[in-house]
């Protein structure tokens, strides 16, 4: 699946042999046996590891995990699609997550999120066409005192107002 816009390589696994090796090494370190049920118990941590390495979980990565844990790919995909932490789409270099927890909400996070959507012309969970920003919402990072809170690649901006949105985006570079 080569995408001309972002010139993604045809195969992530081929493009990054060292990441593939790291994932394989991790999977080899797991106590995988004949009992599919027990193997499944290793699935979520494997997906965490895989997403940590590749940034997202395209089909080929899910297949690698499925094959090694001897699970059906459909089960793996069912799990990936259930948990909001996992994504099978590439994410932008900057992951902007607006906290939509209750504390942030009552302090106006909705308007902040709307402003991000408007400014970047993307919806929640979407990535800008240039692959730079992925906009998302999350629920409470436990920094409610700074509400509304926006996380950019793990960095917390506190007391954000719609006016500051442009600043935050400009700062990314």
């Amino acid at each position: 699946m080569a995408c001309s816009a972002c010139a993604a390589p045809a195969s992530l696994l081929e493009a990054f042999p060292e990441k593939r090796a790291a994932l394989e090494a991790y999977l080899s370190s797991l106590p995988i046996g004949d009992d599919r049920e027990r193997n499944r118990g290793l699935l979520i941590q494997s997906l965490h590891r895989a997403q940590g390495l590749f940034g997202y979980l395209p089909e080929e990565v899910q297949r690698l995990v499925a094959d090694r844990l001897r699970l059906h790919l459909s089960e793996v995909y069912g799990v990936v699609s259930f948990y909001s932490f996992f994504t099978d789409k590439p994410v932008g270099r900057y992951r902007i997550n607006v906290c939509m927890g209750t504390a942030c909400f009552v302090r106006g996070a909705g308007k902040v999120l709307d402003e991000f959507k408007r400014y970047l012309s993307v919806g929640e969970g979407e990535t800008t066409p240039d692959g730079k920003f992925t906009l998302g919402a999350l629920r409470c990072v436990g920094a409610c005192s700074l509400a509304p809170v926006v996380m950019v690649n793990g960095f917390v901006h506190g007391n954000v107002t719609p006016k500051r949105v442009a600043d935050i985006i400009e700062q990314c570079d």
């Binding site: 941590q45 997906l47 965490h48 948990y83 909001s84 932490f85 996992f86 629920r139």
Partner: peptide, 8 residues
């Protein structure tokens, strides 16, 4: 330790 993955 087992990790959640974003599901309330």
């Amino acid at each position: 330790l087992k990790y959640g993955a974003g599901a309330f």
